[in-house]
Nucleic acid binder design. Structure first.
Length: 255
DNA sequence: GCGACAG
DNA sequence: ATCTTGTCGC
């Protein structure tokens, strides 16, 4: 039944995806104010992890979404969607390169998640619209970003013990809401560097859509196993990057 | 003007 | 992100 997906995202298109870098930046400035913030996130039962990988020297984009059940963190669904890559990677415009494929993957998910963890920044972005925040607007769901590297902002040292974190702050921007949390120096707090594993390089957690930094940190820590990345993102990462258990094509299975 | 720069 | 071998550590 083409066109009859049980879960079609989104209900309302935010825009098409053929944009010049200049138009993309203008769009981010327009969308950033729509990102919502909440202190609580209740009734979470299904958590999704999303990540993107590439094949054919970048010609093909591979989106992976994993759905886990809370609180046991058992994977109950895994989707991999491939499509032609539409634009190159440009710092600050990552979402325009990766979200289209991600949406197609989410559309095939068996259930609508209550929270989505994305490999990348949430609002810890120059215009406060990293891929996690942008995806949250499209899916109309709570999202948070867990990145391995920093895009913008400053921070101090992070204690070496697991669970410790330090705020990531940035100079106030036009996109920041008037009530945005700030530190003692008046700098806007856009995320945090979390020590997810003892003596291991910290991950960068930032709220995406519909949750606060405190809540984003709570859920990230709650989904932590013994590895550096929280389970949702770690599993999506494995699938999207070709690693994991992928000896699934012994010379007999076609289709 | 000189770096920095998610994936 | 991706290309790549061995290697250090729990």
């Amino acid at each position: 039944m083409p066109g009859t997906s049980l879960y079609s995202f989104p209900r309302k298109p935010l825009h098409d995806w053929s944009l010049t870098p200049e138009q993309a930046v203008a769009l981010q400035r327009e969308l950033a104010p729509r990102v919502e913030r909440h202190d609580r996130l209740d009734d979470v039962e299904w958590i999704a992890g999303m990540d993107i990988g590439f094949e054919d020297e970048g010609a093909t984009t591979r989106a992976a979404v994993v759905l886990l059940h809370w609180p046991d963190l058992t994977p109950v669904d895994e989707i991999v969607h491939r499509e032609p890559t539409r634009m190159p990677y440009l710092p600050g415009l990552l979402s325009f390169r990766e979200i289209p494929a991600a949406l197609s993957a989410f559309a095939r998910l068996s259930r609508r998640p209550d929270l989505v963890m994305v490999d990348g920044q949430g609002i810890a972005h120059p215009r406060r619209l990293g891929i996690a925040a942008h995806l949250g607007l499209w899916l109309d769901l709570p999202t948070l970003g867990v990145a391995k590297k920093r895009l913008c902002g400053r921070h101090g040292e992070v204690p070496a013990a697991r669970g410790e974190w330090t705020a990531l702050s940035d100079k106030r921007r036009d996109e920041d809401p008037g009530d945005a949390p700030v530190d003692a120096s008046g700098r806007v707090i856009i995320g945090a560097l979390l020590r997810s594993r003892q003596n291991v390089k910290p991950v960068i957690v930032s709220p995406g859509h519909r949750l606060s930094l405190a809540t984003a940190l709570d859920w990230t820590i709650a989904c932590l196993g013994r590895t550096k990345l929280p389970e949702p993102t770690r599993l999506a990462d494995r699938i999207a990057s070709r690693r994991g258990s992928r000896f699934v094509e012994p010379g007999g299975s076609r289709l």
